[in-house]
Design a protein around this nucleic acid. Structure first.
Lengths: 327, 327
DNA sequence: CTGAAAGCGCTAACAT
DNA sequence: ATGTTAGCGCTTTCAG
C-alpha cells in the first residue's frame, strides 16, 4: 500500500508532480511523466480516495433514498442513476428507509457528515420538512415522488393524466363499476392518481362511489390481495379494478384467480408501472409504462449539476398506456 | 459547517477534548462535557467523516457485489447485510456487475483506493483470480456463490442436497420424465444443482436423458420462458420440470399457461429460492426456501470480523422444500 | 515545468 | 482530566 510520498521518492520528483500525473494534468513533461508512471507501476500505487476526499472536501457518493428495494419499479430507475453516476466517477449508496424515520435519519446524517455529496429521494414517506431544510446546504433532487413548491427540483410523470387514461380505457370498454386500489392519500402520487380516476369517471357521467375506493397502507403484493378480497365481497361487485401499482394489481389478480374468477371477463384489471412480472401473469396485465431508466438518468444528471452549483429545472416525463390481456 | 476547531474555541477547550466528547469517551469531566455539547449544538456541528476516515484509514463502507438487482433472491440477503452493517456503523455500496468485467473492475478499484473496507461477493460470474489476489490485502467474503479452496470464507447452502430433495419429491409423485432448466455450468451452484438432480434420478434407477437438460445463459424470466418452449417441443415431453431459480420457473410457467396446458396435471414444476412472486403465480410454485436474511446477516458479520482481523469460518446453512400447488 | 509548503478535519500518543 | 502536537494522503496555490 504505497502512498504518494513513496512514489515521489522513487521517481525522484515531488509529490505535487505525482499528483499531477495521477490526475492527468498536461503541464508535466513527457520525460518526468514516464518516470512517475514507472514508479507507480513498480510500487503498485493506488491513490487513496481518503486523502483526496478530505482535501477536495467531497465524498463522490450519492445517496439514493427508496422506500424498499422490493418494488421492481425502482429497478430501472436505479440502473439509470447508476450508469450516470459511474460515468462521472460517483458511486451510489442505496438506502431503504422502510418508512422508518429513524433509519431515514441515519441516512440524512450521512450527508450531514459529508459522507455523501447529495441525495436523490424517491421515498414518498420522506420527512419533507427535514428534506427541505437539508436542501439549503446540500444538493437534493426528488425523483418520481415530489413536493410542490418545496424548491427541491424533481423529475416525475403526470400521475393524474396517466391515471385518467387508464380509467378512461376501462370506461371505453363499457365498464362503469370501476374500483380503485390506491395507497395512502398522504402521498402526493396517491392523491394525483385518485384525482385522475375521479376526473375520468366524472367526464363520463359516472358518479363516484366511495365504496369502490380502497386504500392500502403500503405497496406490496399482499396488500393488493387483501384489497381485492374486500372488493369481491362488495354487494354490487365492480366489473373493473384500477390499481395504482403493478404490485397491488398482481396481488389482486392472485385473489381473483384463487376464487376461480376470470380476468378480464369477470373482472378487468389495470396496473401501474409495467414491471417485468406484469407480463408474466396469466393473463398479462394492462398497465401504465413510465420511462424509468430515463427518469433515473435525468435525476442523476440533475443532482450532479446541482452539486456543481448549477441551476436545475424540474422535468415531467411522458407515460404510456400498455394494453394487454387483463382488459 | 463548523469544524472541530471552531467548536473547541467556542467551548474554550482543545480539539482533543471535543473529539473525546464526540466519541463518547468517559475521561471527560461532566462539566467540560456540557460546555462542549453546548458549543456543538450552538454551531450545529457535525463531525466530518472525511477527516475521521483519513485519520483512521477506513471508509466504513462495505461493497456488495451482485450480478443484478432484478433477481428478488438477493432482496432479503441485502436486507440482512444492511441491518448488520448499519448496526455497526457501516454502509453498503450495492454494486451490480451485470456480468460486465469492466464494471466489476471499477468496483474492485474502490477497495484498492480505500473507498471500501471490504467486499461481500454474491456474483457467480466474478473473476475469481482477481478476487483471490485481492483477498490477500483486503477483507472478502463470498455469499451464496462460493469457490472451493480459494481461502475466501463463504456462507452458502447445500445446493446439491437441496436440488436432490426437489427432484426426489417429483419422483415420489410418480414422475420419471423430469427436465432440468439449469444455468451455465461454469457456475459452481449450477454444477452442484445438476449433480443433485442426477443423483436423485440415479438413486431411483431413472436414466439421465441429456435431451432433458437445458442451460440458460443467465437467470431471468425470459430465459425460463425460452427454455420451456424447447421443452414443450420435445418428442417425449417431460411430465415435470425442475428449474434452478424461481425466475426461470415463473418464465417457464408463463409459457406453459400460454399454451393452455395445466400445472401440475399436464406438467409439474419446481423452482428454487422462494421469492415473493413464487406465491403469486397461478398455481403457486413448489420451491426450495433458503434462509436469505440470515445468510445476509452472517455474511455481514463475517466480513466485519474479517476487517477487524479476526479469523472467520465458512458456514453452510439449511434449506427447505416448500410444497405448493405446482406439484 | 517543477517543487515547497500549507492545510483539508480529524484522532491519538504523549505530556502535564 | 485536559492540552499539545504530529500526521493520515492528498491537492493546490505560489515561487521559481
Amino acid at each position: 500500500m504505497a502512498n504518494i510520498q513513496q512514489v515521489a521518492s522513487l521517481a525522484g520528483v515531488s509529490v505535487a508532480t505525482v499528483s499531477r500525473v495521477v490526475n492527468g494534468q498536461l503541464t508535466v513533461s513527457p520525460k518526468t511523466r514516464i518516470k512517475v508512471e514507472q514508479a507507480i507501476k513498480k510500487l503498485n500505487y493506488e491513490p487513496s480516495m481518503l486523502g483526496r476526499n478530505l482535501r477536495t472536501s467531497e465524498s463522490r457518493i450519492l445517496l439514493v433514498l427508496i422506500p424498499t428495494i422490493s418494488n421492481p419499479f425502482y429497478l430501472e430507475i436505479i440502473r439509470g442513476i447508476e450508469d450516470i453516476a459511474i460515468s462521472q466517477d460517483y458511486n451510489i449508496l442505496l438506502c431503504q428507509t422502510d418508512s422508518n424515520p429513524e433509519r431515514e435519519n441515519t441516512y440524512f446524517n450521512l450527508v450531514r457528515k459529508k459522507m455523501a455529496d447529495g441525495i436523490i429521494s424517491m421515498d414518498p414517506a420522506v420527512n419533507i420538512e427535514t428534506l427541505v431544510s437539508l436542501s439549503e446546504n446540500h444538493a437534493i433532487i426528488q425523483c418520481s415522488e415530489y413536493t410542490i413548491d418545496s424548491g427541491i427540483p424533481f423529475v416525475t410523470i403526470d400521475n393524474e393524466g396517466a391515471s385518467f387514461r387508464a380509467v378512461k380505457h376501462l370506461i371505453k370498454l363499457g365498464h362503469n363499476k370501476i374500483a380503485l386500489i390506491n395507497t395512502d392519500e398522504k402521498y402526493l402520487y396517491a392523491r394525483q392518481r385518485q384525482m385522475g380516476y375521479q376526473k375520468a369517471l366524472e367526464e363520463h357521467g359516472i358518479s363516484i362511489n366511495q365504496d369502490y375506493i380502497f386504500h392500502t397502507k403500503q405497496i406490496g403484493l399482499e396488500y393488493g390481495q387483501q384489497a381485492m378480497k374486500k372488493i369481491l365481497n362488495l354487494e354490487k361487485r365492480p366489473t373493473a379494478v384500477f390499481a395504482v401499482s403493478d404490485l397491488l394489481a398482481i396481488g389482486a389478480l392472485k385473489e381473483i384467480n384463487s376464487l376461480g374468477l376470470k380476468v378480464p371477463n369477470d373482472i378487468a384489471l389495470v396496473g401501474f408501472d409495467q414491471i417485468d412480472f406484469s407480463n408474466m401473469t396469466n393473463p398479462t396485465l394492462t398497465t401504465i409504462a413510465q420511462p424509468m431508466y430515463k427518469m433515473g438518468t435525468l435525476a442523476a444528471k440533475m443532482l450532479i449539476n446541482k452539486i456543481k452549483g448549477e441551476k436545475v429545472e424540474s422535468i415531467i416525463l411522458d407515460h404510456e398506456l400498455v394494453i394487454r390481456e387483463s382488459t
